[in-house]
């Protein structure tokens, strides 16, 4: 009986081994790309809301301070979504009959909450506290981006652990003076490495990278 496989089959077998390794690498790499892509992280994806609220208009054009609506951000782990009443401080008179604000008026009439879609949704095994970051000189825009330029709100950063650690390992790169925390247009100075290191010292900022800092 003649040999079933020709001599070249040896090479093909060897190459196909290489191909197998390549295929596994492709699947692993492809999965990684998908997992890190906006499809998974929702980075940069505008989220639909019951009212197309524009931060660009309120925080940007009108210059309303973040804390006017997100009142608890300095004292609480959670930066609250404003109550209907806070919207009504202005919208009792402004755009008071605009159809686009009907869900707001309905909320006031019925006492039911507006079902906003959460834009920044950390995994439930992550502990995050707004107040400590705000008090230690981490600006809103460092994590939330230029919210004052967002007509519809999206998540500006990937919110991956790697991204958190990037700052936790080296806070001096991102820290800013406390009075600039709520300044959306803040630009770090050219000598941020020097200024940042001084602020880290002044604010007693620790580089916390132990697991239990966030996974508690």
């Amino acid at each position: 009986m003649a040999q079933f496989f020709p001599r070249t089959a040896n090479s093909i077998a060897r190459f196909s081994l290489l191909g197998l390794v390549g295929a596994i690498a492709c699947i692993a790499g492809g999965s990684y790309l998908i997992v890190e892509s906006p499809y998974e992280t929702r980075q940069g994806v505008p989220r639909e809301q019951p009212i197309p609220f524009s931060h660009e208009h309120h925080a940007g054009d009108l210059g309303i301070d973040c804390r006017y609506c997100h009142t608890t951000v300095e004292d609480s782990s959670f930066a609250n979504i404003p109550a209907t009443k806070i919207c009504m401080n202005c919208h009792s008179q402004m755009w008071a009959v605009a159809p686009v604000l009907e869900p707001l008026r309905e909320s006031l009439r019925t006492g039911r909450s507006i079902a906003w879609t959460r834009v920044h949704d950390l995994p439930d095994f992550v502990y995050f506290n707004h107040s400590i970051h705000v008090h230690n000189g981490i600006g809103c825009s460092t994590c939330h981006g230029r919210v004052d330029k967002m007509p519809i709100t999206w998540q500006a950063e990937p919110l991956r652990m790697q991204w958190c650690l990037d700052c936790h390992r080296n806070p001096a790169r991102y820290v800013r003076p406390r009075d600039q925390v709520f300044n959306m247009a803040y630009q770090p100075p050219r000598n941020q490495d020097v200024v940042g290191a001084e602020l880290v010292k002044e604010y007693h900022i620790q580089s916390l990278t132990s697991c239990s800092t966030c996974h508690r």
Binding site: F78, N80, S113, D124, F125
Partner: peptide, 11 residues
């Protein structure tokens, strides 16, 4: 683990 049976604030 990401979505545990508990409420986040204002959920």
């Amino acid at each position: 683990m990401h979505d545990q049976p508990r409420y986040k604030p204002l959920a």
